[in-house]
């Protein structure tokens, strides 16, 4: 049951996009989002969709993964479209009582919907093609300048790495504890809200206890290997920009220019 949840949706591969430097992937994703918001008309959004399809083709991530990632945002899309259709003023097309539907409203609704869909699909591509470890590593490097402002960048990214690492472990553990309590006759499927909340106690307490134990053990293991924070720490995998990254950056910059031209 719990095993079906996929977190860390990394989709292993050897494509151009997989091989890009994760830092540039993050930058490109940000540029793509900027581009989507710069696009002021349908032509611009079409360019965005086209670029997205191209990227997915290049990455080798199957298209049904895209629909999977878009499913949860559909309610949000519908909600914003409805808001836009009914509440934007302009040239009135239809009118019932006090509700007005305007041409500008419809336009904006379409624009916003595609913007959100592209945004989600575009950032999903980042997580599909980048393993969580690469991702946190890249975030740490990108945020490095903030160290001068005394932001604990290394610590934050280490926390993120550890959190990501332990999600599957915790899921497995939860599954095990649920089964163990079920075997002792715990009833989690029936009863009112209060009863169900109470039924969670036998699961949450062992889960908390074991998380603390695990944290303790992990801290000990890290100290045994002389972990002392990020200062002077070197890496096995040095991030390095290659020609791929510069191509990607050029493409993204080009796309932004195209969108700006289409706006005129």
């Amino acid at each position: 049951m719990l095993k079906d949840i996929t977190i860390g949706q990394y989709f292993p591969g050897q494509s151009f996009i997989h091989k890009m430097d994760p830092r540039m992937k993050i930058i490109s994703t940000l540029l793509y989002i900027v581009m989507l918001f710069l696009a002021g008309n349908l032509m611009g959004i079409c360019a965005g969709i086209l670029l997205l399809i191209l990227m997915y083709q290049l990455s080798g991530v199957p298209m049904n993964m895209v629909t999977k990632s878009l499913k949860p945002v559909i309610p949000v899309v519908i909600f914003t479209s409805v808001l836009n259709i009914f509440f934007v003023s302009g040239e009135v097309l239809l009118k019932f009582f006090f509700i007005e539907i305007t041409r500008e409203g419809i336009n904006l609704a379409i624009l916003m919907s595609f913007r959100i869909l592209c945004l989600i699909a575009g950032s999903s591509l980042l997580t599909y093609t980048t393993s969580p470890i690469e991702l946190t590593d890249a975030i740490e490097r990108l945020l490095n300048p903030l160290k001068k402002l005394k932001v604990p960048v290394h610590e934050l990214s280490m926390m993120m790495t550890i959190a990501l690492r332990f999600i599957p472990t915790l899921i497995e553990e939860t599954d095990k504890i649920i089964n163990a309590q079920k075997a002792r006759g715990a009833d989690m499927e029936s009863g009112g809200l209060m009863q169900r909340a109470k039924a969670l106690v036998p699961i949450l307490i062992p889960l908390f206890v074991s998380s603390f134990r695990r944290a303790d053990e992990l801290a000990m293991a890290m100290e045994c290997r002389c972990y002392r924070g990020g200062d002077g720490r070197t890496r096995m995998k040095q991030l390095q920009y290659s020609h791929r990254d510069w191509i990607a950056l050029t493409v993204m910059a080009g796309a932004i220019v195209v969108v700006l031209l289409l706006n005129v």
Partner: peptide
Amino acid sequence: RFKVGLVFQYPEYQLF
């Protein structure tokens, strides 16, 4: 489940 009692591996982690 009351008729067939199951003790899991490392059952000490289920105490609460």
